[in-house]
């Protein structure tokens, strides 16, 4: 359950008389003049939040320079790849084709083994991108 503490302006420094259990188990909302102004949360939750915020900064929805470079490299290399590897999946890392396979997932996992978990561009070498049907999906924008 969330606890609420009211903050009052004084000339003295604030002190909180809460035991450790209070601070490690439940959030504490600090109010000033009837308005919630801050929250104390267990340090584990704060660290999870910090990690989440860091990940937000590199959201999949945002343009990712590293990923876009790999995709651009694929498009650049595609005319040549169509002559040599049509119908196969290729993996682009650091703007170079590093591996190929007939199976997308197998190729992705092999590239992660070799280069670590990072943005990569794996695509089938065909004239057009593969397309799948999602007739009932609603997108929240």
């Amino acid at each position: 359950m969330v606890k609420i503490m009211t903050l009052k302006e004084t000339r003295t420094a604030y002190s909180l008389s809460l035991d450790k259990a209070d601070l490690t188990q439940t959030p504490l909302i600090v109010e000033h003049e009837g308005e919630a102004v801050a929250a104390l949360v267990p340090i584990t939750e704060y660290r999870q939040f910090e990690a989440w915020r860091k990940r937000q900064a590199t959201s999949l929805a945002e343009p990712d320079d590293a990923f876009e470079r790999e995709r651009a490299a694929f498009e650049r290399l595609k005319p040549q790849l169509l002559k040599t590897h049509r119908g196969k999946f290729v993996a682009v890392v650091d703007e170079q084709v590093v591996d190929l396979d007939t199976d997308r997932v197998r190729l992705v996992l092999r590239v992660y083994d070799r280069f670590g978990y990072r943005p990569i561009y794996v695509q089938i070498v065909e004239d057009h991108l593969p397309r799948v049907r999602l007739p009932s999906v609603w997108i929240a924008r």
């Binding site: 959201s59 990072r118 990569i120 561009y121 799948v132 007739p135 009932s136």
Partner: peptide, 25 residues
Amino acid sequence: SDITVLPESVAEAIGLQRAGDLETE
């Protein structure tokens, strides 16, 4: 649906990295 879809929040929660793209209709 031909393929499985995950919410962005899930990708962010476990730090998924992009491995390509796909066109959907």
